[in-house]
Nucleic acid binder design. Structure first.
Length: 252
DNA sequence: GCGACAG
DNA sequence: ATCTTGTCGC
């Protein structure tokens, strides 16, 4: 109907983000978040989507639940899905959230005792153009505490890959070291975290829902065996493996 | 025209 | 997201 369907869709999405943004809780709400060693935390979740090469609508939606602090896989769900929304920077949630929510609902229906107490999301939370990235979106719609972890820096709200930024990265000496990502407005959008001693490239952690930045960073560090926190890494590995097995490459 | 652009 | 193996270093 419209001469500019994409523009209208984006406007609709923007207002939806503004509406849901008001429901984000940026503070710690769970008892285990106050504990120095997160005692009381037993299950951490991770979600991700993997795609077949050359196909951007068929994907494997993955949910994993790991034990804490051992980080052993307690639950795994792989589900082929057909995406409808296009990928537009700043609107990743409209593409992925429906399928991640479905996975959480399947878990709640079939194994409610395994519901995670916090979910790691592959992407940003408040560190976003309108302070409402995928981790916030999934958090608000699911009601679960969520942490956003991005592998690449989103240049937004005055945060740039400047020389200053590069030198701050160089100053991260050991796993757990971090520095603030502050918007031009002064608002803290997240933190760059050296997630392990071995990885010099940081990950970008931000609040999704029902957790503070500092708790999110501390928890992320405590879930890292490698650069990417284990829940997200397991979700990524297992969804890729699912695609390898069910959609083998068709060459000799 | 050029650079940016979470996944 | 995906295209992609070996290789340099601890």
């Amino acid at each position: 109907m419209s001469a500019h369907p994409t523009e209208e869709l984006v406007q609709q999405w923007e207002s939806e983000q503004a509406r849901l943004r008001q429901q984000v809780v940026e503070e710690d709400t769970e008892y285990w978040q106050k504990s120095p060693d997160f005692s009381g935390l037993e299950r951490v979740g991770g979600v991700d989507l993997s795609f077949i090469k050359g196909d951007d609508i068929n994907a494997c939606a993955q949910l994993v639940v790991l034990s804490y602090p051992d980080l052993e896989v307690l639950y795994e769900d792989s589900q082929m899905v057909t995406l409808t929304a296009p990928y537009i920077a700043g609107f990743l949630a409209f593409r992925e959230t429906p399928f991640l929510l479905e996975a959480l609902q399947r878990l709640e229906r079939n194994r409610p005792e395994l519901l995670p107490q916090v979910v790691f999301v592959d992407g940003n939370g408040l560190f976003h153009y309108r302070e409402f990235g995928l981790a916030c979106h999934l958090g608000v719609l699911s009601g679960l505490p969520c942490v956003g972890v991005a592998k690449n820096l989103l240049q937004v709200q005055g945060v740039y890959k400047s020389e200053e930024h590069q030198s701050q990265i160089a100053a991260l000496q050991k796993g757990g070291d971090s520095f603030l990502l502050t918007a031009a407005s002064g608002k803290v959008l997240g933190k760059a975290l050296r997630s392990s001693d071995k990885s010099s490239k940081p990950v970008y952690v931000s609040v999704g829902h029902k957790i503070s930045v500092d708790t999110a960073v501390r928890l992320t560090h405590s879930c890292c065996r490698y650069r990417v926190p284990e829940p997200i890494r397991q979700a990524d590995c297992r969804s890729r493996e699912y695609l390898r097995i069910h959609f083998p490459t068709a060459d000799t």
